[in-house]
Amino acid sequence: MSVSKIRSGVSCNLDNQLLQATLPLFASEKVEAIEWSFDTLYKVREIPDWFVELLRAFSQEGRLIGHGVYFSLFSGKWTTEQQRWLDHLRKVSANFKFDHITEHFGFMTGEDFHKGAPISVPYTSETLAIGIDRLQRIQEACSCPVGLENLAFSYSLDEVQRHGEFLERLIEPVNGFIILDLHNLYCQLQNFSLDFETLIRAYPLDRVREIHISGGSWESSGIRPERTIRRDTHDDAVPEAVFDLLRKTLPLCKNLKFVILEQLGIALHTMESQRQFQMDFERMQSIIHTFNSRNQSISVTDFLPKESISLNEPVPESAKLYEQQVELSSILEHSADYNEALRSLHRSSLAHSSWEIEKWSPYMLETALRIAQKWKQGW
């Protein structure tokens, strides 16, 4: 147990526009931590020396955290790409000291390792066992605290209400933590007409070590055009409502250590959008500094495993789950519209199964189609 102040940080990747937007914040010494998606450099042939030096500078101060994108935690099949991802994490962790490593909840819909987007899986003992095994492998590779991020997307209200509890059961064996993404939470509050006080209590708040804030977008439903869906697209300014959620959530998370502002570089191509990003950061930091000044000592648990982890051999897999994931991915990526996807799902092996497709919200199935088709060619 140690005592710390909450640190304000930014997502920091090898992206010109994101770095251009962040540079004035670095120069004014405002950035207190950076979060690097260490598995997104697969297309880059050479990492500039200055980027390595930037990572090292934050790493040496215990202010570098890693956020994976592509691991596909719940894939029913254990793949050579996942083993390569772990080998890569092990190498990178030997070169940089990460304060913690995180990944996304869900499985990737893409046809290969670097395509698709994470979407949810049934909350069963089988998926729980696979998720726990994969988290143990990540922890063994990086030798630092490991956490998972709550998903923005859910198929049904029942799934939204059970997400926090399932996350807690997943991370418990590695004594892990969660990233509470407040824009993801905002999406669920809006898309399922929930109130903050009820939903926030469904999460293990003493397990929150990191918070994300970001912007997103509204999308009209094709099923009923007057109905809008909130999407976690990371391509706009942080909404006022998310700053409000941050103010409300800070006092509830006694082990919080980092708050990170996320935005995609593709949305930072104008001076105006870059200035808005800087103002969002300054506003986020102001909220955190105010909270820090009123709360002198924040206890921080280490979130390291309480006992040494022995990895499962053979690696737990589920051929049936994998087949269902491939089938679902194909339906989502290739259906022309919601009605075609619905017909295909009811003819598929997911019908009358633990996926409970019969309970899926029509708007969320439509959203799943849009997410899968947006990212099927990769990021």
Partner: peptide
């Protein structure tokens, strides 16, 4: 966090020349 002026210069140059 304070970064060295040489690192800030290197990032600025690196980003500006893409």
């Amino acid at each position: 966090m304070k970064l060295s002026s040489s690192l800030l210069q290197a990032i600025t140059l690196g980003v500006s020349v893409a």
